[in-house]
Design a protein around this nucleic acid. Structure first.
Lengths: 122, 122
DNA sequence: CGGGATCCTACGGGATACTG
DNA sequence: CAGTATCCCGTAGGATCCCG
């Protein structure tokens, strides 16, 4: 039932780092969309909806920097840029999807706990 | 190789919500420590190290609100308050630990990609 | 089309002091 | 001991305009 080995602090730091990296407002949404295949900038923009172009740029740059996505430029006119998950990005998608599945299944329980708590406080 | 069903937007939103909730600076560290068993306020404080008391309070309140942790007050003098993961909290710990394990194993690859990217830009 | 450069605001989060 | 109350700062992130 209970994991037998205590959680080591340094490991938790690594988790914390990754989660903060992936836990910003848009990263998982972008990664999720890219999980369906390569996409162009505005294609992503409209598929996600609500994201500013600045934040999409920032998010994509971050993913590229960490090796989760690749950027391919076609020097045509008008220009065309494709974004795609790398192997590392697709591997990341595995545990992230698992967490996502958990979130999907348990969002009701969280919402309920939240309502109870708020009611008790008020 | 490739997951056959496309990621639905609403599901990704749920993932995003949970990840933002859990992706703040301290939540996973607190949850990780609580994973070893019930703990008192200052016990947590020192076990984690570097966290301000304000943020520990905030983080614990958040966990309590979402039903991930429980708070037990012993009306003694001096007061004693125990925090403990709920069942929901322990269940959350499963996919989070998986992601954590991934982070631990792959932090090298991320660091490498990051260095390469930074070198190329500069 | 795919951004870069700016400006601006809200909020996460630290430091410090006080309280029951 | 376990908080609450303030003050303060940096940064995430939105809106807008411009460019090749």
């Amino acid at each position: 039932m209970k994991p037998r080995h205590p959680h080591r602090t340094e490991d938790c730091r690594a988790v914390s780092d990754i989660l903060q990296r992936v836990g910003d407002k848009w990263t998982v949404l972008v990664v999720g969309k890219l999980g369906d295949g390569p996409m162009r900038f505005n294609e992503l923009r409209h598929a996600i909806g609500g994201i500013s172009q600045k934040m999409l740029t920032t998010t994509l740059r971050g993913l590229e920097r960490d090796g989760f996505a690749s950027r391919t430029v076609f020097p045509t006119i008008p220009p065309r840029v494709d974004y795609e998950l790398t192997d590392l990005g697709r591997e990341l998608l595995v545990p992230v999807s698992a967490l996502g599945e958990w979130a999907r299944l348990n969002q009701g329980r969280v919402a309920e706990a939240r309502m109870k708590f708020d009611a008790t406080v008020a």
